[in-house]
Amino acid sequence: MTVHFVWFVAAVMGILAVAVLGRLISGPTVSDRAVALDTFNTFVVGIMLLLAVGYDSVVMVDVAIVYAALSFVGTMFIARYIEGEV
C-alpha cells in the first residue's frame, strides 16, 4: 500500500519537475534559468530517492548522491559564467 503511494508521489514530483521547465524556457535573464535548473535538479534527486523505494534497490540512492554532487558543480559553473569569469 505504502509503495503505491510512493509511486503516486513520484508521479506528482515528475509533473512538478516538468512545470518548472516553463521558467527555464521563459526566464527573462540567465539567472532565472539557473534558478529553474537548480530547482529541477533538486526535484530529480527527490524522484530518485522515491524510485529507490519503488524499485526496492539501493543503487538508485547512489545515483541520487552522485547526481546531487554533479548538479552542484554545474550550478557553480553557471554562476561563474554569469559573473563573467569563465
Binding site: 535573464t29 539567472s31 539557473a34 534558478v35 537548480d38 533538486t42 534527486v45 546531487a68 554532487a69 548538479s71 552542484f72 550550478t75 557553480m76 553557471i78 554562476a79 561563474r80 554569469i82 559573473e83 563573467g84
Partner: peptide, 19 residues
C-alpha cells in the same frame, strides 16, 4: 542536498548581483 543547495543558491545570488 542540505549543503549543496544552500551554497548553490548563494553562488547564483552573488553572480547575478555582480552581473
Amino acid at each position: 542536498l542540505l549543503v549543496t543547495n544552500a551554497t548553490g543558491a548563494h553562488a547564483i545570488a552573488r553572480a547575478s548581483h555582480r552581473s
